[in-house]
Design a protein around this nucleic acid. Structure first.
Length: 538
DNA sequence: AACTACTTCAACCGCACGTAC
DNA sequence: CGTACGTGCGGTTGAAGTAGT
């Protein structure tokens, strides 16, 4: 960075350089980021690899939290908030980068319907995803929908659901956050009964939380997780880009009858018998593929009349749009700084995106015929039905024995304890990389349980991805073989090394790791990040 | 190739809350 | 009890990238 200079300083991290900010933004230190400590001017703007390394080192040494102390203990001239943000959004282990899978998108839509712009809470339920990521995704989605003149939510999401959930869900169903909890405690009697009902509702959900955890586990497994009942949430068949393009096709609505059978996890169906209108879910065919008929009486149409209130939506304008139909997450986006860690090539999906553009730009006619729906959905629905039956049978045999480690809304579900089936053995062994790339043709062509089983076998050898930074950070070490020529940011990394290598232990370890591979020199940066010894835990 | 429009996303900002003193 | 500080959250911004002309 042009505004970076290095001078000499000392820190207890043994780094002998100081980073000063010559950015013109220096004088614009905001309230939340007051310049403190060592009389430094706090740097703003994009983070460099050097800074990342320093921060990672700090966290490994001192743990998360106490972010303002970063300035004290390192040469990093960033405010605590900035450090926390950087760590949380980009550096912490087990972060999942790349496009959202359809399952994740579905969850986001559903959660947004339930809680509104509670990005942090949503992130808790999307392991590896950050609130910022979800927020960005959602905002993008809204823009798309606005442009396309499409409803924000699939029509299955009831207005009542939103009203209810907006008011209470975050403190009952999705976990008690600080602010809502206070509201909860301060509620007068007028709301107490209602709230008590909701609490019962929420409580009734908890015993079935294993289902939810399984859902998330499946999400994390990223395969559509065919052994999960929640596979039924997935659109059974994705139209090919060509189909989309040529037909201006939409994902049809599945009939409400079928929805009743398939769309609801049991805990949704059973949880609120007196509040059935509040059930809030999305049919398999609806997620991101909104039908365009007004088939549901409570079809949510965001309009200027503020159908949504309480800031449920960030805009009062019509919120419409179609979503891109992306393949399941491929861990790292093309633009991610970490994307070069991936060892498997991204499947081409530009066609798919193109098709979505076409899809967006050519909204289908309003009339949606059921026959259309079934013509597109029928095979998928059969698959779903069959598979649903399988799932239920499997579940009875203890296929999904797990239970969440914490309540639904207050934790990130780990998958380790959730999947006991032998069918998931492969996944269990590779939890560090829960998202398994799905070949385009498979994901786009519909996934049956058998398909995914096969996929699991086929993909098995690739599951251990020791090149992922989060794996590296989470695990203690990756041997030299982990250096696969992956360059995180070779130029800046070189700078980083130049900075870090001040004769300190870290730098030495760093250097030795990078140079001992016995391979032809690729440049220091090319291996440095993959060859990190347990240096970050020094 | 140059320009413009649009999209994406990292980072910032202000505010609210919790905690320590 | 009041204040300062640390942290987390949601909204917003703007740079970089991409697509279209």
């Amino acid at each position: 960075m042009s505004y970076m200079t290095t001078t000499t300083a000392e820190s207890d991290d043994g780094m002998h350089s100081s980073i000063y900010n010559e950015s013109p933004a220096d004088d614009n230190i905001g309230n939340g980021c007051r310049s403190r400590g060592k009389g430094r001017v706090l740097k703003k703007g994009p983070w460099t690899s050097t800074e990342d390394g320093i921060l990672i080192n700090y966290v490994n040494k001192h743990g998360e939290g106490n972010w303002n102390a970063v300035q004290k203990y390192t040469i990093l001239s960033r405010c605590g908030k900035s450090c926390r943000l950087r760590w949380a959004n980009h550096l912490r282990p087990n972060l999942k980068k790349g496009a959202f899978s359809q399952e994740e998108e579905r969850l986001i839509v559903e959660m947004h319907a339930k809680m509104g712009n509670k990005w942090a809470q949503m992130a808790e339920n999307l392991p590896g995803r950050t609130d910022n990521e979800i927020k960005n995704y959602w905002n993008t989605r809204i823009k798309r929908r606005q442009r396309a003149g499409l409803p924000l939510y699939p029509p299955d999401i009831h207005v009542e659901d939103l009203q209810w959930s907006e008011e209470y869900t975050t403190s009952s169903f999705m976990g008690v956050d600080r602010r809502r909890h206070q509201d909860f405690l301060q509620l007068g009697n007028s709301k107490a009964n209602v709230l008590f009902d909701e609490l019962n509702f929420a409580t009734s959900l908890l015993p079935r939380a294993s289902d939810v955890s399984a859902m998330f586990a499946c999400n994390m497994l990223g395969t559509g997780a065919t052994t999960s009942r929640y596979e039924s949430y997935m659109p059974p068949i994705l139209p090919s880009p060509k189909q989309l393009r040529e037909s201006g096709s939409r994902f049809p609505i599945c009939s409400s009858n079928i929805k009743q059978e398939l769309q609801y996890p049991d805990h949704f169906q059973n949880a609120a018998p007196q509040k059935s209108p509040r059930s809030c879910s999305i049919s398999p065919c609806d997620v991101d593929h909104p039908p365009y008929g007004n088939q549901h009486p409570s079809h949510v149409m965001i309009s200027d009349s503020h159908t949504f209130t309480d800031g449920m939506l960030p805009t009062s304008k019509p919120l419409f749009g179609a979503l891109k139909l992306e393949l399941p997450s491929f861990q790292f986006s093309e633009t991610s700084a970490f994307d070069q860690w991936k060892t498997t090539p991204s499947p081409p999906h530009s066609d798919l995106l193109d098709s979505v553009d076409a899809y967006i730009q050519s909204p289908p006619p309003l009339e949606t015929e059921e026959s259309d729906c079934f013509s597109s959905c029928d095979t998928g629905l059969l698959d779903m039905l069959l598979h649903e039956a399988k799932i239920k049978a499997s579940a009875k045999h203890g296929l999904l024995l797990s239970s969440p480690q914490k309540s639904f809304g207050s934790t990130t579900y780990t998958t380790e304890t959730q999947i006991k089936s032998g069918e998931f053995d492969g996944y269990q062994k590779n939890l560090a990389r829960p998202e398994i790339p799905i070949p385009t043709q498979l994901s786009a062509g519909g996934i049956s349980s058998e398909n995914v089983k096969e996929m699991g076998q086929v993909l098995e050898p690739k599951r251990v991805d020791i090149t992922r930074p989060d794996v590296l950070l989470a695990s203690s070490w990756v041997d030299q073989q982990g250096c696969l020529g992956i360059v995180r940011d070779s130029s800046s990394m070189t700078d980083a090394l130049a900075l870090i290598l001040g004769g300190d232990d870290i730098g030495n370890a760093y250097m030795s790791a990078g140079s001992s591979s016995g391979q032809a020199p690729r440049g220091v940066g090319s291996c440095a990040w993959t060859n990190l010894p347990p240096v970050w835990s020094l």
